[in-house]
């Protein structure tokens, strides 16, 4: 792996594990419950959304041609009531699968590839693959924070506590 993408890759790996923990103890009804029972995001939506984002990265990295989450969870698709979403067990499995693919793809990135210009706009000054990875690692951390507050809102342990517990074994 190129050292140029190491900070972003480290964050992707951290998020992979943290979200897996955060999906492990969820009840299906809670997974599709929307913030304040309104029209906002649910954990199922947010999980699908950042999994979809990872497939977008995999396409940019040349290791995926399709995004199986794009139709339901793509950037232009907002949160819905969840009736058409896969179950939370399936979403978790999809997250783990995407994580394994992303980690492997990142391991293979060279310095030259890391500095290759990216098509499309990026909301940060670095318009290379490194910049794209930097922003997308931030983006999914942002949404995992939202999953964290949705969990505690419904009475589940905080992600921090879940992480500590997992590390203690």
């Amino acid at each position: 792996m190129s050292d140029l993408i190491l900070p972003a890759a480290t964050l992707f790996r951290f998020n992979s594990g943290l979200l897996s923990l955060g999906l492990s103890d969820l009840d299906q009804d809670d997974a599709v419950r929307r913030w304040k029972d309104g029209d906002g995001s649910s954990i199922a939506y947010l999980t699908g959304h950042i999994t979809s984002s990872r497939y977008g990265l995999l396409k940019a990295l040349g290791t995926a041609t399709e995004n199986p989450y794009g139709d339901l969870f793509g950037a232009e698709v907002g949160s819905k009531d969840g009736s058409a979403y896969p179950g939370i067990t399936e979403l978790k499995a999809g997250w783990v699968e995407a994580a394994e693919k992303l980690h492997a793809a990142l391991d293979a990135v060279t310095d030259e590839e890391a500095l290759a210009a990216q098509e499309g706009g990026l909301p940060i000054p670095d318009r290379t693959l490194r910049g794209r990875l930097t922003f997308m690692a931030w983006h999914e951390s942002y949404h995992i924070g939202q999953i964290g507050i949705l969990r505690t809102e419904m009475g589940y342990p905080s992600l921090r506590k879940s992480l500590y517990k997992a590390r203690k074994g």
């Binding site: 900070p7 964050l11 998020n15 906002g40 951390s141 942002y142 924070g145 939202q146 507050i149």
Partner: peptide
């Protein structure tokens, strides 16, 4: 950096 992104995400819901 992760911590800040995580909590900024929460401000969106709050």
């Amino acid at each position: 950096a992760f911590h800040q992104a995580y909590h900024v995400g929460q401000t969106g819901l709050l």
